[in-house]
Design a protein around this nucleic acid. Structure first.
Length: 157
DNA sequence: GCCAACGTTGGC
DNA sequence: GCCAACGTTGGC
């Protein structure tokens, strides 16, 4: 079981929206690096740190779980969708998505500033490389983040 | 909402 | 196969 960071814009769809639904198709990913992680590595049962970007309160806000296998993102085939991709086809889909479900919301956001200031997180993909909406989290980074969140008792074995 | 960073595209 | 143009991302 791996941990990931999925970025979202809370004005569009954030942790509070996720909490209100049973599960949510995480689609609209149109970046190749993010797509490759999603298609090749994200698996049912994995855990996801939800990260809010482009907002006042930037940072990791909670945890979700991957509740489906990866499947082609339906929006790429819909001519009316903002995410329509005329170069894609059902036979050879370019873009993928996965369903995730709410697990918990942290009492407080773990802010970007906190992440930057925390020893052991220096090499996080989040801090090393911008503009990547799906990214892996190393085990020691996962432990540090869970500790910052005060949820260490739920740390996976 | 601006715009820098960076990955992809496509003309040549 | 180079590289300028273009599109997207995301902190500010």
């Amino acid at each position: 079981m791996h941990y990931w960071i999925f970025k979202s814009e809370p004005d569009e769809f954030g942790i509070n929206d996720l909490r209100r639904v049973e599960s949510e198709p995480w689609g609209g990913i149109r970046n190749f690096q993010a797509r490759n992680f999603l298609r090749d590595h994200v698996a049912k049962g994995d855990r996801v740190f939800i990260y809010h970007s482009r907002c006042k309160d930037i940072g990791i806000v909670g945890i979700a779980e991957v509740v489906s296998d990866t499947y082609p993102d339906p929006s790429q085939f819909l001519a009316t969708s903002d995410y329509f991709d005329p170069k894609s086809s059902v036979a050879a889909p370019k873009w993928f998505c996965v369903d995730i479900a709410f697990v918990e919301k942290f009492a407080r956001t773990i802010s970007l500033d906190t992440l930057k200031a925390t020893s052991g997180l220096e090499n996080m993909v989040l801090l090393k490389q911008g503009r990547l909406s799906i990214q892996p989290v190393a085990e020691h980074e996962r432990d540090i983040i869970l500790t910052l969140a005060g949820t260490r008792e739920r740390k996976p074995k």
